[in-house]
């Protein structure tokens, strides 16, 4: 019984249909990666250029970061797949809780009164 757990398999149990599906998925991942690289480039260009005002750059960069976050979580980490209900709820809870934490530590530290 337990010895089987340490034995490699000779073949994959995937059918041809499943193999095609997984190859298609892999191509989608490549596209996701290309998009991420593009977003990163955009962010660096926005920050590096002197023409854009800070009031535009900061929200823009943060928006790009959030898009990347979703690409990583939902594509690279497969949160979009089925059987990910619990991971989704935990991860979303965590992300929801980061917002008040960061806002409080940035703004509510006694320097400016709200």
């Amino acid at each position: 019984m337990a010895e089987d757990m340490e034995q490699p398999f000779e073949k994959s149990s995937m059918s041809n249909e499943e193999k095609r599906k997984i190859n298609r998925e892999q191509r989608v991942q490549m596209i996701a990666f290309a998009v991420m690289i593009g977003l990163t480039l955009l962010a660096f260009i926005a920050a590096g250029s002197d023409m854009l005002p800070g009031t535009f750059t900061i929200p823009f960069i943060l928006l790009l970061a959030v898009v990347q976050l979703f690409l990583q979580l939902y594509y690279f980490m497969h949160l979009k797949d089925k059987d990910h209900g619990w991971p989704n709820s935990f991860m979303i809870s965590g992300l929801v809780l980061t917002a008040p934490t960061i806002v409080a530590l940035m703004l509510l530290i006694g320097i400016v009164k709200f």
């Binding site: 019984m1 337990a2 089987d4 757990m5 034995q7 398999f9 000779e10 073949k11 994959s12 149990s13 995937m14 499943e18 997984i22």
Partner: peptide
Amino acid sequence: ANSADLSKGLPA
């Protein structure tokens, strides 16, 4: 759950 059926091949 603590065993593997090697003949069927690696699960997806």
